[in-house]
Design a protein around this nucleic acid. Structure first.
Lengths: 196, 196
DNA sequence: ACCCTTTATGTAAATATTGACATATGGTAC
DNA sequence: GTACCATATGTCAATATTTACATAAAGGGT
């Protein structure tokens, strides 16, 4: 089974979805840490069905084209449960902006600073979006977020990852841009620490 | 040109290297944010040479097999400079552990907690390694790290990214593990903030 | 009528990436 | 001797992933 397969099972363990629905989920929420196009999803669904992990029923619609709604089977749920606790196969990080930073000493300073300011903004925007989601979740779901058996806890956990990631990334971008412009890099928000 | 091509040019802009050297760099330092196997590197070098970005000379060795040492050409350097200031094509993040977190509500709690504790450790170890490098760089290179034209600044910048990334990742793992065990998650080191 | 958009499902070609296979030199360990 | 390791360079097959091509129903706008 591929990781994409488990990503799909993870979504289907919460609700029944069509290939089209899955594609939208992969472009949105879940797409923040795993994503795929429909051209990958449809064949993967066929494989999952072939492997006995999911089934589908055709739902006829009048105002739209008919669709196939997929449902996870007990076998799929078992496989998913097993997979979750296995150590992840460490995929290498491939971060193009960091790679660019590695060669930034060659570049035009003004343009380079602009690039990192732009990226800082992108990550801050993403962070704001996440923070809104977080506020909504904490408001709406409250105490359930502390129950490790609740899917909402799991959603919240991934969101926390997104928040930390974007925050750190935005801060780094700012530090790089400041450094290129030879400003005193703005202090990272940290615990009180003696300054040298 | 592929991103891998620019990764190779980024290394060759600092020093002349053989395919074997490049492979080791891609497994080490640079591999922290971009990596490739030798089976990708050798063909890519051929393409780079074909495109007029690099050249090579054969260096005959007595105690080892002969090697091809590659050198970046002016054309390659120009291409690299141009590429650095272009906005990165946003590659989707694919983080398997975060994906697992998304389905963690289904898993055995004890095993899940163990998984996240293990991953926390992995990221802390990587962080320690980075911090050692950082101390070495700051010690050895000192003031040069503030010169945006110096390759050492660029290396330092990518290292800072690595440090931030691993720190955040380890903290998140700890938070997840604590939450699964229904402990009060350990406080993230943040600026003084009113507790509700 | 014709075009565009959303929903809906697929396939095909091209590229990127991994993992395995293959070969060769010279040194060291047993 | 022979087995193994680091150095050194390559190819090939299998996957994974992206981009483009393809079709179709229903609704809205012009």
């Amino acid at each position: 089974m591929t990781t994409l397969g488990y990503a799909i099972l993870g979504l289907l363990s919460r609700e029944e979805l069509s290939g089209y629905d899955l594609t939208r989920r992969m472009a949105g929420q879940v797409g923040y840490f795993w994503n795929a196009r429909h051209s990958q999803i449809y064949p993967e669904l066929a494989k999952l069905e072939d492997g006995g992990h999911v089934t589908h029923i055709v739902v006829e619609q009048t105002e739209r084209p008919d669709k196939k709604v997929y449902k996870i089977k007990a076998e799929g749920l078992d496989a998913l449960k097993e997979w979750v606790i296995q150590p992840p196969v460490s995929r290498p990080i491939r971060d193009e902006l960091t790679l660019k930073a590695y060669s930034v000493w060659l570049a035009d300073k003004e343009e380079a600073a602009r690039l990192f300011r732009e990226e800082e903004l992108r990550h801050e925007e993403q962070l704001n979006h996440y923070e809104e989601l977080r506020a909504w979740m904490e408001d709406e779901w409250g105490g359930d977020l502390a129950s490790p058996d609740d899917p909402r806890f799991a959603s919240y956990a991934t969101l926390r990852r997104g928040i930390g990631y974007e925050k750190e990334y935005a801060e780094w971008c700012r530090w790089v841009a400041d450094s290129i412009e030879r400003r005193q890099p703005s202090e990272k928000p940290e615990k009180s620490k003696s300054r040298r």
